[in-house]
């Protein structure tokens, strides 16, 4: 099973998904991420999915789950770089990703997190 790397950038964690997601990978990612947030005391999580071109409802729900989980540990989640085709698929599946913030690219995602954290 492939592992998805979790990188720390300043106060944030960056998860860049470069592979086709399997259900097992997703479960492992959620556990790893929860551990990392606690270990690093990160205030935000950025999930970069610009390389993902296939999603299903399970993966769609993963974003909401990660967001809910991170919020409990006082970290905000931003999903960045979603491709148009993926966005259309998620809408057609009826998933609105409640509680997840989105940005067009990594840079805007970082800015969004910075501004929402303010100087807390």
């Amino acid at each position: 099973m492939q592992q998805i790397p979790i990188l720390k950038i300043g106060r944030f964690l960056l998860v860049s998904i470069q592979i086709d997601l399997q259900d097992q990978t997703v479960v492992a990612l959620q556990e790893d991420l929860a551990d990392s947030i606690v270990k690093t005391g990160a205030r935000g999580v950025i999930i970069d999915i610009s390389a993902v071109d296939i999603v299903d409802s399970y993966i769609g729900r993963m974003f909401s789950t990660i967001a809910a989980m991170s919020r409990l540990m006082d970290a905000e989640t931003v999903v960045v770089g979603m491709r148009p085709a993926v966005a259309i698929t998620l809408v057609e599946l009826g998933l609105s990703l409640d509680g997840v913030r989105t940005a067009l690219d990594l840079e805007q995602g970082m800015r969004l997190l910075e501004s929402s954290l303010g100087d807390r």
């Binding site: 931003v78 999903v79 960045v80 979603m82 148009p84 993926v86 966005a87 913030r101 989105t102 969004l112």
Partner: peptide, 12 residues
């Protein structure tokens, strides 16, 4: 509405 939702998912 669908178009708007999709755009929102992308962060726009």
């Amino acid at each position: 509405l669908k178009t708007v939702m999709a755009a929102r998912l992308m962060g726009a």
